[in-house]
Write a protein that binds this DNA or RNA. Structure first.
Length: 591
RNA sequence: GGUUCCGUAGCUCAGCUGGAUAGAGCAACUGCCUUCUAAGCAGUAGGUCCUGCGUUCGAAUCGCAGCGGAAUCACCA
């Protein structure tokens, strides 16, 4: 890569001119700003002290030295302490000519010895359908996996389904009491929605019971604990843990409804997993670890029999790991599943895609693992993402302000259809092609809208803006791809032609953006940031559109130039496709 | 109250390891379809980068303090 050559050359020049020793890799080159002439810029201020010369002088001397030693440098200029380096068009042209046919451009294939990474994401509860918050989680999880894989890692995607607990018992109980044997088939409801409906039903009657008890003079807290429905749900959980066959059968039946529903949602969303863990299989794990911790005095037991980890030395509190009745808590389970996962995959890294409301939990998890003597605790990485808010505030399931994942996607497909019909462009498509296109555009809009923002930040989800097709949106990039594909299909094959001698301004800009892709994937992967890829794809599409607007491609008379531009088009198409693929967004051949 | 995260145009967001006159999109306004897809392009307007102090040749970026917002600090998961 040209950057490395420049870095090496700068390093040796600094040494021979001023006796300054700097590692080539630590020399920072940046893209030259548009207002100035050049491709790469070196800021020379850091060197002026040691060089004992003015910034302008240092920059000029360096520029001259570089120009003499690197023949790819066509020119340089100096503005204050900025050395702007121009690269010869020949380099850019050959870059396109060598890479345009590579449809995996920018993507690194994992080699046998490359690192392996396990990514956990989604991790739903089985008592209600997926909502907007899950969508961000799923899209991020999938996209991070794609991103790391595209940067040459072996990635395994796992899902830990929270399939047991009091919340599921609530749905089960409500269904038994008020369901009249309703099934997904009889009701026409998706399984997860049906079960979610009874979760709401439970809450409704539960609240009525509380109200009743309070009006009879009970305190609110006592009422919450002593409401008959709650007591019954807890008995059900106890029966479940004892393995009661009736409860287990009902539990299995209703969970299977939910799984069927989830599968549909996942499929529509375009996400998937290599392995699915169920909490019912893993919730007892971790107890052994606690015992081991007690034996080695890492943990301690209180008088009532409960087991704790003292984290006050780390500036945190004491953390409960076993209740006084010996049952485990969330943390206990997570210690167990972490060990299980480490044993299952022996990966170099265990990534958990979980919202930032659990920052504390994961901080503690890592600490306890380390205290327990697992040196792999630093492989655990909590990929913490911000919450999704709505224009009128936060989503609250109790207040019915949740945005359901299925509804949202369906809504967006409808809108996509409307928009397409309005444009009236692809009237000759078959119904199947059309519906595929609508789905592709709808999900492209949704995914791009969510993934373009920095994962660590809270984001605002405005339903109206998310289905926009203009500007910085998924469909804008998809449209750019479709236009390019259309040109390529009309153009001739041209492999071995003579390349033009120089580029025009717009061509050079496009090539330079393309040139950045491999480095971008790398730093996006290092930052766990699909958003960087999204913004890159947008930048590329925008740069290409500007080129497309005033540079003829097929209409160019000179066949050499025409061929070069076609190659450039192909390369842009690949780069768009590959970066959108990292986001889990498909791009159409036409739209 | 403790801890963590956040604060950039009317709105939604970029701005990666400090670098030149802080960038996009939406909304508003003005041009460009007889020509490779106008879901596009070109342009106008819009800024106390929350405030203050500090470090530095240089700060939206780093440090400290303050203000504002969010999350979290469960014998829930």
């Amino acid at each position: 890569m040209i950057e490395q050559i420049l870095q090496d050359s700068i390093s040796t020049s600094l040494n021979s001119l001023y006796n300054i020793n700097i590692e080539p890799s630590s020399i920072v080159l940046q893209a030259t700003k548009k207002e100035f002439q050049g491709d790469f810029t070196l800021v020379v201020f850091p060197f002026v002290k040691q060089a004992k010369k003015s910034p302008e002088q240092v920059a000029s001397e360096l520029g001259e030295s570089l120009k003499n030693s690197v023949d790819m440098i066509s020119d340089y200029n100096v503005v204050k302490g900025f050395l702007n380096i121009s690269i010869a068009d020949d380099y850019w042209i050959r870059f396109v000519n060598h890479n345009y046919h590579n449809d995996a451009f920018g993507i690194k294939q994992a080699q046998p010895n490359d690192s392996s990474i396990v990514v956990e994401y989604s991790s739903p509860n089985t008592n209600k359908p997926l909502h907007l918050g899950h969508i961000r989680n799923n899209l991020l999880g999938w996209s991070i996996s794609q991103l790391l894989a595209s940067n040459g890692a072996h990635v395994k995607k796992v899902n830990l389904v929270n399939d047991r607990g009091i919340h599921i018992c609530k749905s089960m109980l409500a269904w038994l009491r008020y369901g009249n044997g309703e099934t997904p088939e009889s009701s026409g409801l998706k399984g997860d929605h049906l079960v979610g409906k009874y979760y709401v039903v439970f809450d409704k009657y539960y609240k009525e019971e509380i109200k009743q008890l309070v009006s009879e003079g009970m305190s609110e807290d006592d009422a919450k604990r002593q409401a008959p429905l709650m007591i019954e749900a807890q008995e059900m959980l106890k029966k479940w843990e004892e393995g009661d066959s009736e409860v287990r059968a009902l539990w299995e039946k209703m969970n299977n409804w939910v799984y069927a529903g989830f599968d549909q949602t996942y499929q529509k969303m375009g996400v998937g997993f290599d392995k699915i863990y169920y909490e019912s299989d893993t919730y007892l794990l971790g107890k052994e670890l606690v015992q081991k911790g007690l034996d080695t005095n890492v943990l301690f037991k209180k008088e009532d029999g409960s087991v704790w980890c003292d984290l006050t030395g780390e500036g945190l509190d004491e953390k409960l790991l076993l209740r006084k009745d010996g049952t485990s808590v969330y943390m206990t389970q997570d210690l167990g599943t972490a060990l299980l996962r480490h044993n299952d995959f022996n990966a170099n890294q265990l990534i958990y895609v979980v919202g930032n409301e659990q920052d504390y939990h994961f901080k503690v998890l890592k600490l306890i693992l380390r205290k327990l003597g697992f040196d792999w605790s630093d492989k655990v990485y909590h990929l913490s993402y911000g919450m999704v808010e709505l224009p009128n505030g936060k989503m609250k399931s109790r207040e019915g302000t949740v945005v359901d994942a299925d509804d949202l996607m369906e809504e967006m497909v409808k809108t996509a259809q409307m928009m397409c019909e309005e444009h009236g462009k692809n009237t000759d498509m078959s119904p199947e092609e059309k519906s595929e296109l609508y789905h592709m555009l709808a999900l492209g809009a949704l995914k791009y809208f969510i993934l373009k923002v920095d994962p660590t930040k809270n984001m605002l989800f405005n339903p109206e803006e998310s289905i926009d097709f203009n500007g910085n949106t998924g469909p804008f990039i998809q449209y750019t791809h479709a236009r390019i594909r259309s040109i390529i299909k009309k153009g001739e094959e041209c492999d071995s032609v003579q390349m033009p001698a120089q580029l025009n301004e717009k061509e050079r800009e496009v090539v330079k953006v393309l040139h950045n892709l491999p480095g971008l994937i790398e730093s996006a992967a290092q930052n766990y940031s699909p958003a960087m890829v999204a913004n890159y794809a947008y930048d590329l599409a925008k740069t290409f559109n500007s080129f497309y607007q005033d540079t003829p491609i097929l209409k160019e008379a000179d066949s050499n130039i025409r061929c070069f531009r076609l190659q450039l088009c192909q390369m842009v198409a690949h780069a768009i496709k590959n970066s959108m693929n990292v986001l889990g967004i498909k791009v159409p051949e036409r739209m």
